[in-house]
Design a protein around this nucleic acid. Structure first.
Lengths: 391, 391
DNA sequence: GTCTCTTATGTTATCGATAACATTGATTGT
DNA sequence: ACAATCAATGTTATCGATAACATAAGAGAC
């Protein structure tokens, strides 16, 4: 529509300056419409007709409302804010006129002048992951109360991609930025540090946080599960996760597994790499197949997520392996599937939704000047949930 | 940060106009800083100190880069576009200066002036649904090739909420808008029609489309499954879905089920309402429980989605009911879980990702002026996928 | 009755990039 | 060789809302 509106303006220039023909952008649509007409004087009329034919109208602005209501544009602007001092009747008149004219508020102008966008940028590894979706949803709900909207991007579990994404997002001038994870490229770190807005790292406890943190230790959470499995008598314990060369939360979980196993004096060699994250149910199943072939005597397996754990469970079912009698399974993330599948999954609840809620509260506190210069550190303590896939 | 930057500017006004004390917004931060100083002449110095102390600097603009490079701001602007005519060395100098100064492109200004945001607004019912996530992902990937970014919002399966969301999104001046479903409030329809941008309705085949359509008939898809079930010998067929009072795709599927059943001269009374959408796995399981109590002789059940179907399946497993021997189950959406669970789910593949891809292509075609005034109508033909939960 | 304070509104300048138009020197075609 | 074209850059005005400041009229205080 802005594109279509352009010819109208261009044709006006046409009347005054013939040299504008040189401009390539001008030489497209309008010319065609005008060439059939040989009298330059009627160009404006033609143009208006053309515009009307195509139902092009210059977008309604506050100035239009002001004119039709008989007040100043500033008063119109005030009438749209709930707190501004405008008389009841003026406001009603303005809103009525706006409705009649079909006015749609133009936030791009407001954004520039007020230097506020009411955007909060958010990066997540994948849009198709119930855990991150939960975080985003509760974050979004929390921020909505203060009129903040989320600008979302996904990184495909790739820090280089994250860097590009962060750069893109910062151009939109968000009020704050929430990133998933605490590992970033050096340039991404720099971009975030220099952005001049609150930065919140989530789903992790970074060693050197950039700004605020709402997260938990992935390694520690898995360690707890290992401890529980060992105390339940399991000794030959395996781990199914993504490839080790990515800086993701899955890698931290894997590292936590290895450390915990070694602390118990056990063998930490039962590691199955299921490919680059995200690890799907299918990949979990495949990994389970490989695990059973490489280490048939495995007593328990911890998976990087409930999705891969469920996949592993189905593989056992296909092979007629009793869970947990012959092999125990643990997941991560407390997805809905883990609670309802048969047998139900032992897992770790990382409180995905709470991360979003806490992050939203943190952002609002910072933007409202509470928490002055301090940095927020919200540590979530994941819960071990014992269900039927382990004894 | 814009907040923090304000005092700096305000204090400059302070020097010229004492009456600015009256402004409440001014009477906050800066005054405190200045009161300890009794010589007005040094105010600028104080201010700079204060600004430095808090590491506040006026954001870098293209004008700054222009100054430091010795070119005009316009040349700087051109240097950032890949197609603009700028000499190689000038461009390099500009980019180098930008890097050194830590410049971040301000799209809010570009948005206003160029009347382009490169946003495409998208509404989906829920952010936590793998089907819609697939559509959004492929849509996003498709649009990214032309530099378009998605502005996403979710409606909670509520048309009133959708109306609010659409209004919010349109204020951001997207280049196009993609909505899920073809049922909207009258006001939402009006907003979309008047927006002056391409409108794409998806996941449905609306009777009166607003603009373009990329979708399929939910009713027809379920009808095919019913037909298959009947031809397989099932007669007592039930449907598990959301409450009937919502205008959603689930309601269409339910309607398609009823119509198809009646066409076969069968009894369409085995309808279990599982609550307001979205229907979770848990709700699917509960609904299955109720179904088995109300209609114990049911031979097959079709669920509004794979999630509820899987929930239903687990309920059968908990009750020791053999699937498909004692009862057959059909789902909808071809979620990953349906392919991997044991037994695997008979379902309908609605090609969620393809909807996104096609919509992206459509949008780009329209924005690039191909498809002139025509309206796109991309009809997807869902696939019936026969797996182990039915014979 | 004068002064202060508040409420409702108007005026002006501005946010930062860029569209539109202008200009200059170099290159090409015939 | 000279007009025509192009490549590279500059100048000016503008997108539309709103921050900052100004002002007029009414309410209340002493």
């Amino acid at each position: 529509m802005p594109q279509e509106a352009r010819p109208f303006k261009a044709s006006l220039f046409f009347v005054s300056a013939a040299s504008s023909f040189a401009t390539p952008s001008f030489a497209s649509g309008v010319i065609t419409g005008l060439q059939s007409c040989d009298k330059l004087a009627v160009v404006p009329v033609i143009t208006i007709t053309w515009a009307k034919m195509h139902n092009i109208r210059k977008p309604i602005t506050m100035a239009d409302i002001a004119r039709s209501t008989g007040v100043s544009p500033m008063t119109v602007s005030r009438a749209f804010k709930q707190d501004a001092s405008v008389s009841q009747e003026t406001r009603e008149a303005v809103l009525r006129a706006a409705e009649e004219l079909g006015y749609v508020f133009d936030s791009t102008a407001a954004n520039l002048r007020s230097q506020r966008t009411d955007f909060v940028a958010v990066t997540i590894p994948s849009i198709n992951n119930a855990n991150f979706a939960d975080t985003v949803r509760s974050l979004s709900d929390g921020l909505a109360e203060r009129g903040l909207q989320i600008l979302l991007g996904y990184t495909n579990y790739d820090t280089k991609e994250e860097e590009r994404l962060i750069e893109q997002l910062l151009r939109r001038k968000p009020e704050a930025i929430v990133v998933t994870g605490g590992k970033h490229t050096p340039r991404a770190r720099k971009l975030l540090s220099n952005a001049g807005i609150p930065v919140i790292e989530t789903w992790d406890l970074p060693e050197e946080p950039i700004g605020h943190v709402v997260g938990f230790s992935n390694a520690l959470a898995v360690r707890e599960m290992v401890n529980h499995f060992v105390s339940s008598g399991y000794r030959k314990i395996a781990f199914i996760g993504g490839d080790a060369d990515r800086d993701t939360r899955g890698t931290d979980r894997r590292a936590g597994f290895i450390a915990a196993i070694k602390d118990h004096g056990l063998d930490a060699e039962r590691l199955i790499a299921a490919g680059p994250p995200p690890i799907s149910m299918r990949e979990g199943a495949n990994a389970m197949g490989r695990l059973l072939e490489q280490f048939p005597d495995t007593e328990a397996v911890i998976c990087v997520s409930d999705l891969s754990a469920f996949g592993a469970l189905t593989e056992c079912q296909r092979r007629g392996l009793a869970v947990p009698e012959q092999i125990a399974i643990g997941g991560f993330g407390d997805y809905e599937i883990g609670a309802i599948c048969v047998p139900s999954l032992t897992t770790i609840n990382a409180f995905a939704a709470e991360i979003g809620t806490k992050a939203a509260k943190l952002i609002i506190d910072v933007l409202d000047g509470r928490l002055a210069n301090g940095l927020g550190r919200v540590t979530i303590r994941p819960d071990l949930i014992l269900r039927e896939t382990s004894r």
